[in-house]
Nucleic acid binder design. Structure first.
Lengths: 345, 345
DNA sequence: CTGAAAGCGCTTACAG
DNA sequence: CTGAAAGCGCTTACAG
């Protein structure tokens, strides 16, 4: 009856011996299988508790051909975006056995799919979380299906079946934000676009255009500037839009970093914000609070999206009720701060 | 001679059969062991290449009682810090089999050590990277040793033996930055401290004090304000320091977020920067560029530190020369931008 | 220099 | 309702 664990930790065999059952029965208890006699289950559970037994994840992984790991796949130009989402995932799995592995990829490489394939066949994770912009690539999602790895795609719009995506309503949120501008009397409103090919950029632009039309204004293409979600592109856009004689009295930038760039240019020119120029961004990143004046923006609920996505992918490993459906869409909300003013005159 | 891999992927047995050797010999080739006949090795390598064989990490993990995973342990109040470091680690392991798992912990919880113990005994990683401030906890490092998990501690000063830590020279770098201020004629210089108990905070304060003394000035305790590396604490510090009748003409804040808070207060009061107030921060975070005027700061080489730390911990799995020593100390560098001005009069 | 056997700690497939 | 056997794909310990 003496217990002598080999490597320090008790194994399934120790528990089986201690409870006087086969290890298969212990396995059944661990995995919560049905059809065990109550007394047997209790005896095993008592043995598990007494020995402080924890199943070895490596052994399970080998037998199941699956690791208790979630993989975060991303190629995102914005660091804060990745981190916020990551924090949401971590919050969801905090009290579980699951681990989070982070895997950045290069969407511009033609080996991207091969890299992902190699990584997934090697690590056989429980599931994959895919961040924008690569969440928009159908070939990637298809690859996961082919490799039998469940996935959840994150995006600014529904990118897949409800159990395979989590989305925010960027378009509506941006429209609401831009209505702040039109309601304040602005008629010449500039727009800084996100990177080409990004769904989020398209959604935000659609929201901007909707607000303009709702206000009965017309879209002026010359008031639009290109951008790539980076600060520097905001600088360039600001220089383009603010150096015109008939410069806009307000600018919506498709994310906060670019909005900060626009403000940099404006303040450098001696313009006052929001006196001479109103600005709105998107993300509610730390930058939005740190710059002066504090930026009015749209809060993108990334942390919550990360939580939802993890629950969708691995709810049953997080002790969640299977029956309870996890929502698919989260709302972005306008955060009013100090960069929107009414039009003079 | 027909090859029929069970689960899609070829196994060590397939390679052994194909090369007409035992699987033990294949194992020797995989692990680069000495003392194999050249011809044998080549035959095995040819079989590996032909079959596209990749060792199964789960099986190795079970047999070796060790996962090919690096764990990033942190409890850092600054998101960007974590992300930069993480990116350095990811860069180092990009072309290897290694994976990075991220594990945030709660340093205020009395179960912190137990949590870490449970996580490490479960996951048995190749090694652990510990970020400040918990990198400063000797009990944590000791726990890793006890569990036989190699670790590298990151810090603003040498925290451990050279093969177990990577450090920056915060103190010297801050002294150099503050000399910019004294050289410009500032004599009333405020200081915003980092959180109590953080080594980085102590190092930066030491650097500040050294610069003050070098300039022949004397330290004025009333010109010091508490802070916790967060923006809000910078706001509070700014309000304290700038509302005095004899307000300082320059302020060094122990990180960029707090510097942004100080600037927020100053600009809100109508002060001009750097005309009325010079400001210097620390980190060279994105915020430093985004705010206006662009912040003069000290670049903390976190990405490079992450790379070094990963190499130190897992160099031999990254195909590095064992003999080549990995440096332990990296230098922080002053980045001059637009927030330091000469004293009027 | 190379291999046959046993083992890592789990699970699946099959019995009864 | 429960178990004995075989297997997941590697490695260690021991032979020769």
């Amino acid at each position: 009856m003496s217990i002598k664990p080999r490597s320090g930790q008790p194994t399934i065999n120790d528990v089986a011996a201690h409870a006087d059952v086969s290890k298969k029965t212990v396995s059944r208890v661990i995995n919560g299988e049905e059809g065990l006699k109550g007394a047997t289950r209790e005896r095993v559970q008592a043995a598990i508790a007494e020995l402080g037994y924890v199943p070895n994840p490596q052994a399970r992984a080998l037998a199941l051909r699956r690791n208790m790991t979630l993989v975060l796949l991303h190629d995102n130009p914005n660091a804060q975006t990745v981190l916020n989402f990551q924090n949401g995932v971590l919050r969801a799995i905090a009290n579980s056995d699951l681990a989070l592995a982070v895997r950045p990829v290069d969407r511009r490489s033609d080996r991207m799919l091969d890299d992902v394939r190699a990584f997934l066949t090697r690590h056989r994770p429980l599931g994959v979380l895919i961040l924008p912009p690569i969440s928009e690539r159908d070939d990637l999602a298809q690859l996961c299906s082919e490799l039998d790895v469940p996935y959840v795609r994150i995006g600014s719009a529904l990118l897949d079946a409800p159990d395979r995506c989590v989305a925010s309503n960027d378009s509506e949120a941006v429209a609401a934000a831009c209505r702040l501008l039109t309601a304040a009397g602005h008629t010449r409103i500039g727009f800084v676009r996100g990177p080409e090919g990004f769904r989020s950029a398209a959604e935000r632009e659609a929201g901007f255009q909707a607000a303009i039309r709702t206000a009965g204004l017309k879209l002026d293409p010359s008031l639009c500037a290109a951008g790539n979600y980076r600060f520097e592109s905001g600088i360039a856009a600001g220089e383009k839009l603010l150096n015109r004689p008939d410069r806009p009295t307000a600018i919506f930038a498709s994310n906060d970093e670019m909005a900060a760039g626009v403000m940099h240019v404006a303040l450098g020119m001696g313009l006052s914000i929001p006196g001479d120029l109103s600005v709105i961004g998107f993300d509610d990143s730390p930058t939005a609070q740190h710059i002066w004046p504090s930026l009015t923006t749209v809060r993108w609920p990334l942390v919550e999206m990360g939580e939802l996505a993890a629950e969708k992918l691995a709810g049953r490993f997080l002790g969640h009720d299977e029956a309870k459906a996890v929502p698919t869409t989260l709302s972005s909300a306008v955060i009013e701060r100090d960069t929107v003013g009414v039009v003079a005159g």
